[in-house]
Write a protein that binds this DNA or RNA. Structure first.
Ligand SMILES: [Mn+2]
Ligand SMILES: [Mn+2]
Ligand SMILES: [Zn+2]
Ligand SMILES: [Zn+2]
Lengths: 141, 141
DNA sequence: ATTTAATATTGTAATGATTACAATATTAAT
DNA sequence: ATTAATATTGTAATCATTACAATATTAAAT
């Protein structure tokens, strides 16, 4: 609540404030975890990690804030074949590779098709998601 | 169990048999429903409809067979922001538009990028899914 | 045709991720 | 300080899906 908060405060407070979200300690840690670990965590993974720093943390707080971040356009959700939702920061557009063996969600940086389009066949596009399913490089060996 | 089965039997039995799935009456009706209604139904929607023809139908049967069809490559799942999984026939590759207003999943026929690729950045591709999120033509008016 | 084995369907109970809700704590406004 | 607004917490409920065991159906073997 003292030292660590200052480290991350400047980095993420602007992002949250610019989206109209008050940068509470819990929110900053949730955001920090998702951004620093590029592993597209689930709510439970986030809860488990941040509980170490905030032992009183509630799962409900994690869910509440993840939903809020998505609503505010700070995060986006990734739905895989597993039962949990995963979360990713909204930043540079990129695709994802879902490995059916290890379950990892891997960033795929490529020139996103349709990225600049605002309409398709009369429908207004607000977001484009491209996902590849298969077996990742590591699991192929 | 007599008349109707004959109508649809020829149409879908080959598909199921070719994938090593025995064409039971329930399975044929499930497949028929998904193919004829191009509305990407959920398990519950399928159950509600087919219950009218098979009053003894069990939800478990619907779930069992949907999972089987996916495993055999006959169907694919679509995960939206709503809590249910939706199902689509595996046929001509196409993208989907998810309308946040009416909740519909609309087929988008376009030349699918990455369709012919088998690898990306070392990862083996088995399936590509492209989804557009936004507001559909109808809901824009 | 009977018997036996394999597979499919059904019904109920359990699971597990997420949400609803009410209470408490914290922060901001007056 | 007081009051109002917002955030966090804990528990209970929801709801889609799965686990499991019993029954029914189909296919194979005798
Ligand atoms: Mn990502
Ligand atoms: Mn489709
Ligand atoms: Zn892998
Ligand atoms: Zn719509």
């Amino acid at each position: 609540m003292e030292e660590r908060e200052h480290d991350i405060y400047r980095k993420f407070q602007d992002l949250l404030s610019s989206k109209g979200v008050k940068p509470s300690f819990q929110r900053l840690l949730i955001l920090e975890y998702i951004i620093k670990n590029k592993n597209h965590p689930s709510a439970e993974m986030i809860y488990q990690q941040i509980s170490k720093n905030i032992p009183t943390l509630s799962r409900t707080t994690v869910y509440n804030n993840l939903n809020l971040f998505v609503k505010k356009g700070i995060l986006t959700t990734l739905k895989t074949s597993d039962s949990e939702s995963h979360y990713d920061i909204v930043d540079k557009p990129h695709a994802h590779f879902y490995c059916s063996v290890c379950g990892r969600i891997i960033d795929i940086d490529l020139k996103m098709p349709f990225f600049s389009r605002t309409f398709i066949q009369g429908h207004k596009i607000e977001e484009v998601k491209i996902q590849f399913l298969g077996i990742c490089k590591k699991c192929l060996q």
